[in-house]
C-alpha cells in the first residue's frame, strides 16, 4: 500500500477538444480520493508534451500512438506504456469511397486520388501509407491529397478526416483513409448508406497510451494503475469521464500493436519531433 501523498503526480495531455478539461478535472477529482493523487497540465501539441515528459516537467503523458513511438525512439526504448483505453488496443484505419464505386481492396486506389488526414495522424496518414506500401503501392502510384487540418494533434480532433470525407463526397477525391472512430461516428444510424462505404479495413493496432519514464517509481505506477483500472463504467461519476474520453474501461497496453507504426515511422522517415 502506498502511503497517501500530499504531492500529486503531474499528467500531461493535449487539448484537442474543449472536453479535455472536463475529462481531466474529472480524473483529478477521482484520483484525489485515492492514494495516488494527480494533477494535470494541457499542451497545445504532442511535440511539446513529449518534450515535457522527457524533460521531467510531467510524470506521465497521455500520448497518442505516434507520441508514444516518438518517446520510445527518443528514450532509446526506456519509456514505459502503462495503460490504454479498451478502444485503443483494437484501433483500425478504414479506406472509404463513394458508395457504388466498386472498390474492393487497396489495389483499387492505384492511379486514383486518395485523401489523407493530417500528416502526423497515424490512423489517417502514416499507417494508411504504410499499408499501401506493404501492398506494393508506392506514393507515386496514387495521387495523394494531404489535408493537414490539425497538425500537432496527431489527428485527435478528427477534423482532417472529416475534411477528407468531404473531399470524397464532393468528388475531389476517389477515396479517403480515416480512423475507425471517425468511421463509426459518421455511420451511426446507417445514415451514410448509399453515400460512402468502406472497402478496406486495416489489421488492429494500438493507439493512445499513458507513457512514463523510468524516473517514475514502479511502486507508485502500479498503485496508480490499480486505481485507474478500478474506474467502473457502472459508476455514474466514473462513467461521465469514461464516456467523454471514449472508453468503457482502462486496460493494459498492447505493445505488439505498435509494431506497424514503429516500422512506418522508420520507413517514412518521420522526424522525432513534430
Amino acid at each position: 500500500m502506498i502511503p497517501a501523498s500530499t504531492v500529486p503526480r503531474l499528467i500531461g495531455s493535449v487539448a484537442y477538444s474543449p472536453n479535455v478539461v472536463t475529462v481531466w478535472e474529472g480524473m483529478r477529482a477521482y484520483f484525489t480520493g485515492t492514494d495516488t493523487p494527480i494533477d494535470f497540465v494541457l499542451f497545445s501539441n504532442y511535440g511539446r508534451l513529449v518534450d515535457a515528459l522527457i524533460g521531467g516537467t510531467v510524470d506521465l503523458a497521455w500520448n497518442t500512438n505516434l507520441a508514444y513511438v516518438r518517446t520510445l525512439l527518443q528514450t532509446k526504448g526506456a519509456c514505459r506504456a502503462l495503460a490504454s483505453r479498451d478502444t485503443d488496443v483494437v484501433f483500425q484505419s478504414v479506406f472509404v469511397s463513394r458508395a457504388g464505386t466498386g472498390f474492393d481492396g487497396l489495389e483499387a486506389v492505384r492511379g486514383r486520388r486518395l485523401a489523407l488526414g493530417s500528416r502526423d495522424s497515424a490512423q489517417a496518414a502514416i499507417l494508411p501509407l504504410q499499408y499501401l506500401h506493404e501492398a506494393g503501392i508506392g506514393d507515386d502510384d496514387v495521387t495523394l491529397m494531404r489535408i493537414d487540418s490539425d497538425v500537432g494533434k496527431h489527428g485527435d480532433t478528427g477534423r482532417s478526416e472529416l475534411d477528407a470525407l468531404r473531399a470524397v463526397l464532393d468528388d475531389r477525391a476517389d477515396a479517403a483513409a480515416i480512423g475507425v472512430n471517425t468511421w463509426q461516428a459518421i455511420t451511426r444510424g446507417e445514415i451514410m448508406t448509399g453515400a460512402i462505404e468502406s472497402f478496406w479495413m486495416s489489421p488492429e493496432y494500438s493507439h493512445c497510451t499513458f507513457t512514463a519514464l523510468p524516473a517514475l517509481s514502479t511502486e507508485w505506477a502500479e498503485a496508480w494503475l490499480a486505481d485507474l483500472f478500478a474506474m467502473d463504467w457502472e459508476n455514474p461519476d466514473h462513467r461521465a469521464i469514461l464516456e467523454l474520453e471514449g472508453l468503457r474501461r482502462w486496460v493494459p497496453p498492447n505493445l505488439d500493436g505498435y509494431g506497424s507504426l514503429i516500422a512506418a515511422v522508420a520507413e517514412q522517415g518521420i522526424p522525432d519531433r513534430w
Binding site: S17, T157, G158, R159, L162, L169
Partner: peptide, 18 residues
C-alpha cells in the same frame, strides 16, 4: 446532403459536452 453530418460532427467536436 450527407456533408451536413460531417459539418455537425466537426462543430460538435469544437464545443464542450452540454
Amino acid at each position: 446532403n450527407h456533408g451536413l453530418v460531417l459539418d455537425l460532427i466537426d462543430r460538435l467536436g469544437r464545443i464542450p459536452a452540454g
